[in-house]
């Protein structure tokens, strides 16, 4: 049996159900990595006059979602959790439905809806992790909040394209990715 860290002991003492928290962290990590994969296919298909205009924000969201995966994994292990051995299991435990390419890939609106739904699902996931950890597990909270900031911006980018009015957010437009999560990406990739 691995020795409990003081951090884990104190989080439990503060009343966080660590098994539930780990379940959510793993499922949301799965959502990020699978989204990275599915967005790769979406990006490839974002072509033509309309599609090309979307390509860069889809790409920024894709890279940042992968960063979220990278940032979540150390915390999962720190808390005593682990990723499933089999990647099929990992895919299937995702906290969000797969962001499949729409049946008609030239339908840019359908494409946007897939992207928007995926981001909205992610916003739910991190809001819940923040709610569970606020004032109790400061490190997970800080991480989940950083990711939440980025997911909310992604949602805003896609919603704006769908004609839901101005969001007040600017896309990265060449600025570095992951302005919030960057500080957690310390393994030589930040």
């Amino acid at each position: 049996m691995k020795q409990k860290t003081v951090a884990r002991e104190l989080i439990e003492k503060a009343g966080v159900d660590i098994d539930k928290l780990l379940d959510l962290l793993v499922r949301n990590a799965a959502a990020e990595l699978t989204t990275y994969y599915y967005y790769t296919i979406l990006r490839v298909n974002l072509i033509g006059l309309e599609g090309e205009g979307l390509k860069q924000i889809a790409e920024d969201a894709r890279i940042e979602d992968r960063n979220h995966f990278e940032a979540l994994v150390p915390r999962i292990y720190e808390l005593g959790g682990e990723l499933p051995k089999n990647m099929v299991d990992f895919h299937n435990c995702s906290a969000c439905p797969p962001a499949f390419l729409p049946p008609d890939p030239t339908d840019v609106k359908a494409m946007l809806e897939v992207l928007l739904k995926a981001e909205q699902c992610a916003v739910r996931g991190y809001t819940q992790i923040c709610n569970m950890t606020a004032g109790k597990d400061h490190r997970t909270y800080d991480l989940a909040l950083a990711i939440l900031h980025e997911e909310i911006e992604h949602e805003a980018w896609f919603a704006e394209f769908l004609g839901n009015g101005p969001s007040g957010h600017y896309s990265r437009e060449g600025r570095p990715n992951s302005p919030y999560v960057g500080k957690f990406l310390n393994a030589g990739q930040g």
């Binding site: 539930k20 379940d23 959510l24 499922r27 299937n92 906290a95 969000c96 439905p97 797969p98």
Partner: peptide, 12 residues
Amino acid sequence: RCFLWRGGRHFW
């Protein structure tokens, strides 16, 4: 038909 209810499980 919900992905997130596969196998009758939805989170916990």
